[in-house]
Simulated scan of single mutants.
Amino acid sequence: MTHPKILLIYTGGTIGMIKDAETGALRAFDFDNLLLRIPELKLLECDIETISFKEPIDSSNMNPKFWVEIAEVIENNYTKFDGFVILHGSDTMSYTASALSFMLENLAKPVILTGSQLPIGDLRTDAKENLITSIQVAALQHKNKPVIKEVGLYFEYKLYRGNRTTKINAEHFEAFASLNYPELAESGVHLKVNKEYLLKKPKVNKDFIVHKDLESNIALIKLFPGISQTILQSMFNAPGLKGVIIETYGAGNCTTETWFLELLIKAARQKIPMINITQCSGGSVSMGQYETSQKLKKIGIISGKDLTTEAALSKLMYLLPKGLSPKKLKNAFEKNLRGEMTS
Rank of each mutant, 00 (worst) to 15 (best):
P4W: 06
K5T: 02
L8D: 07
G13A: 09
G24D: 03
A25K: 14
L26K: 03
R37S: 15
P39I: 00
L41D: 07
K42C: 08
L44H: 13
C46D: 11
D47V: 07
D47K: 14
T50K: 14
S52A: 14
K54A: 15
E55Q: 15
P56A: 15
M62Q: 12
P64D: 08
K65L: 10
V68L: 08
K80A: 15
F81A: 03
I86M: 07
L87G: 05
T96D: 13
A97D: 03
A99R: 02
L100V: 00
E105F: 08
N106I: 05
D122P: 04
D122H: 11
T125Y: 02
D126W: 01
N130V: 01
T133P: 04
Q136R: 04
Q141I: 03
H142Q: 12
H142S: 14
H142I: 11
K143A: 15
K143N: 14
I148K: 07
G152D: 11
L153E: 01
Y154M: 06
K158N: 10
R164E: 11
I168K: 01
N169W: 04
A170H: 11
E171M: 11
A175Y: 07
A185K: 00
E186S: 09
G188C: 03
L191R: 02
N194W: 10
Y197W: 13
L199V: 13
P202V: 12
K203C: 05
V204T: 15
K206S: 14
V210S: 09
K212C: 07
E215D: 14
T230P: 00
Q233G: 13
S234N: 13
S234H: 12
A238C: 10
E247K: 14
Y249K: 08
G250Y: 00
A251D: 08
T255E: 10
T258M: 08
W259G: 10
L261E: 06
L263R: 02
I275D: 09
Q279D: 03
C280M: 10
S281T: 05
G283A: 08
S284P: 03
S286G: 07
E291W: 01
S293K: 09
K297A: 12
K297N: 13
K298G: 07
I301P: 13
S303F: 06
K305V: 01
K305T: 01
T308M: 12
E310K: 01
K315T: 02
L319S: 01
P321Y: 06
S325C: 11
P326G: 10
N331Y: 08
A332N: 06
K335E: 03
N336T: 00
R338Y: 10
